[in-house]
């Protein structure tokens, strides 16, 4: 197996010097793969993503333990623009486009990674999302939710990333559109060769496209495996896919007593 492009080693992130949001998180993302980081609200997924992209400093948070290693280089303390220059692009959950700029300007404003071909990166964005070509002159503030998501991924692609970090792709989109966007992520991987780390609450759709998945709860990784293994796991079916409870009522993992959960995860 090739060396991972991204490796988190026992990562610990603390907000305001007192609140530990992520504890001992270790994960690996192999080159050219799509890896899903799953979990409910507040599990620490986005914090993990922001620690990787260098943006947690803006939230008065910092990496207090562990390391973020990208292509063999430790990057946990690098400023955001240095991280982007290394070839890591983030598609954020909110405020993902420049609303007063046209679609074309959104793509043009992106700064490609040094050494990458800028024109080719933008052409790729238009090829993967042909709708953006038709909307070229439209101000991004007037785009629909799906179009914004396409533009957000497109303008991240204009940075010619080696690693694309996608935060909650399914947020606010209709189910059919979510499936379509997930298929586009596969196209992105195929066309650009980019590696993708996908943070997602919607385990069902994320596991459709992912090569590997990690599950986070309460700031820790509690389970990882291939999509087949995760889908077969009783707790994943019960708490994340809503198919394994047997009671007809979907439950959260928080509904289950901790001692039973521990026995289940580690037993």
């Amino acid at each position: 197996m090739s060396a991972p492009l991204l490796r988190l080693e026992k990562l610990e992130v603390t907000y305001h010097r007192v609140i530990t949001a992520v504890q001992g998180v270790s994960l690996e993302v192999a080159p050219g793969t799509i890896v899903a980081l799953l979990g409910t609200n507040g599990a620490g997924k986005t914090t993990t993503l922001r620690a990787t992209s260098g943006f947690i400093g803006l939230d008065d948070a910092r990496v207090t333990e562990g390391a973020v290693v990208f292509d063999g280089e430790r990057i946990e303390n690098l400023p955001p623009h240095r991280v982007t220059a290394l070839g890591i692009a983030l598609v954020p959950e909110r405020n993902k486009v420049f609303e007063n700029l046209s679609v074309a300007e959104n793509l043009d404003a992106a700064v490609p990674r040094p050494g990458a071909r800028r024109r080719r990166s933008i052409e790729l964005a238009y090829e993967i999302f042909p709708a953006l070509g038709r909307l070229r002159r439209r101000e991004a503030g007037y785009l629909s939710g799906g179009e914004r998501q396409m533009l957000a991924i497109g303008s991240a692609l204009a940075c010619a990333p080696r690693l694309l970090l996608v935060d909650e792709l399914s947020q606010g989109l209709a189910p059919l559109l979510v499936e379509e966007m997930m298929r586009r992520l596969e196209t992105v991987r195929a066309e650009t060769g980019a590696t993708i780390l996908l943070v997602e609450q919607n385990a069902q759709v994320a596991l459709e496209v992912a090569d590997y998945g990690y599950v986070m709860e309460n700031g820790r990784i509690v389970l990882d495996g291939t999509p087949e293994r995760l889908r077969a796991h009783q707790d994943i079916r019960e708490f994340y896919l809503g198919t394994g409870g047997g009671t007809g009522r979907r439950r959260s993992y928080r509904d289950v007593k901790q001692y039973r959960r521990s026995r289940r995860w580690y037993g």
Partner: peptide, 9 residues
């Protein structure tokens, strides 16, 4: 913030 995420210094 988004500008920094798009590599703009």
């Amino acid at each position: 913030l988004l500008a920094a995420q798009r590599g703009i210094g």
